[in-house]
Nucleic acid binder design. Structure first.
Lengths: 290, 290
DNA sequence: GGTCGATCATAGACGCTGTCTATGGAAAGC
DNA sequence: GCTTTCCATAGACAGCGTCTATGATCGACC
């Protein structure tokens, strides 16, 4: 069985001349890609690449196979675009992760309305698992959410990497720092976002450093967290995407956790739709700017 | 992701006009095939078949896709045959299941030698698991063994279905019957093949009928079982492939257990080799005759 | 010449998904 | 009616593609 993923890996390596770079370009780890190429070579019964230092190069057999592989990939593309010749009435069902800043969604929707596109939207809020399930069942066409490794089947498109940062009121003594050590936050009281996907890791990080902050609020409302911080009643921990100028976002030293925000598509067909949808274009534009 | 298996299912349904028949032709169950087509239709965002009574038929979108699907399948074929243009020195490493009758292997090897083919063979005996593992690692090219559902990845090719039958000496009172009920064998003494892959099921069958035969021999040698039977010292239970004219093979009533004997290939490449190898041609011929 | 960095291969664990068996529902035939 | 013949659905299992962690090998650089 020569599965599609092997062709993808092969084309990437042939183009980039390196297993590592190819792995990054197809969003898998290097061992995964090595295994994929190894399996392809076993299936074909021929070595496709010469592994030298300073880059891998195609063997003669590899060159011949490259021609075929390109053609197969092209046929897949054509089959897809051909069958979606009639794009149907433009209804796009969009799942939006609850922890995507409301402000961002609002701004995109506003522009979408102003653009006068005849695209009808159905928006649906939900958690990570809920959105994945609805994508799976074809109940939504696309989701704006956090991208995880096991989302590979949904044709993930990462739009932005958002670090988790400390949220401080502008008048906080550390608000001007480039970064703050966890220990200096022991006195502050925290607004705790109970719905945060990174909550367990954040807790672990602080307890490992012996810091056990008191909380002033437990909530599932991001707006309320920002309100508390603005009022100077506490501090918070949020993805930088929530930055809005009224509060200060400061990285915590040695805390590298981030989330990848992006699009997931229900199917190949929806990926194709995504290339023409005005709404999705606006989503991309929003994150390119930010 | 439009994986290869979906294309295989689609082409089968398009050709045969029925999910059930298509499922049989690609060796999966009907629900599996239904799920595959459903997924393909989701991925493409279009219905490919109209499900009516008296047969399914292609939708317009399905017809268009059929053209592409055929082309992709053809490209796969060409890529494979092209890369194996140079077949290398003809060394074929063959794994043979221990419970394949020695007589059969012997006959095939004899004919192979007589044919004067310049194909060098390496034979290796082993159990089911051992052979599968060696195929997996590419240590053997092909295996003649029992085919199981989970061997799908080895491109299985079933050559014969062998029922398990009672082996009786020609002078046994039941040797002439078309079939014998288990209960009438309670008095006989059995030669028990300890290496038999079906031993647990055979035991279960007899004990469920309250028959608990005494054994006269426990062995891992099929030749010795046949010797015991020939000598009239006991009876045995073996796949019908062992029939050789010196003993009688009689089906046991209500005992339907059978094994599928056939070929497994290490990879796509070896399937291609299998199309030209004289040895494999002889194996196929042997089972077609029998 | 050791140490570091870069690159591809290997080992073990995890979890998605394609497969199975068992069952449901709906149309056609007797 | 009852049976037969389709395809669809539900739940369970297991294979394999993926990950992290580690090893092996070579070149570069004081």
């Amino acid at each position: 069985m020569i599965d599609q993923y092997m062709l993808r890996y092969f084309l990437a390596v042939a183009e980039l001349g390196s297993f590592g770079r190819a792995a990054r370009s197809v969003s898998v780890t290097q061992p995964t890609l090595s295994a994929g190429i190894a399996k392809l070579e076993r299936e074909l019964g021929a070595r496709l690449f010469d592994r030298d230092r300073q880059g891998v190069s195609l063997t003669p057999a590899g060159s011949r196979f490259l021609v075929r592989a390109r053609r197969i990939a092209a046929e897949y593309e054509q089959a897809l675009s051909e069958i979606q010749a009639v794009p149907e009435p433009r209804l796009l069902r969009v799942g939006v992760l609850g922890t995507i800043p409301t402000r961002a969604v609002e701004a995109i929707l506003e522009r979408h309305g102003a653009s006068g596109a005849d695209e009808v939207l159905e928006l649906l809020d939900g958690g990570e698992r809920e959105l994945a399930e609805r994508l799976e069942r074809g109940r939504i066409d696309v989701a704006l959410t956090v991208i995880r490794p096991h989302h590979a089947r949904f044709h993930p498109e990462v739009l932005a990497r958002e670090r988790y940062m400390m949220v401080l009121p502008p008048e906080h003594p550390l608000a001007g720092e480039a970064q703050v050590p966890a220990e200096q936050l022991a006195q502050d009281r925290m607004a705790l976002r109970r719905h945060c996907e990174a909550l367990p890791e954040i807790n672990r990080f602080f307890t490992q450093r012996g810091v056990r902050p008191r909380f002033v609020l437990k909530t599932t409302s991001d707006a309320r967290v920002l309100a508390i911080v603005r009022a100077g009643a506490g501090i918070g921990m949020m993805p930088e995407g929530f930055a809005d100028g009224t509060v200060r976002f400061v990285p915590v030293r040695d805390f590298e956790l981030a989330r990848d925000v992006g699009l997931l598509f229900a199917s190949d067909a929806q990926v194709a739709v995504g290339r023409t949808s005005p709404f999705i274009a606006l989503v991309r534009a929003h994150y390119r700017k930010a």
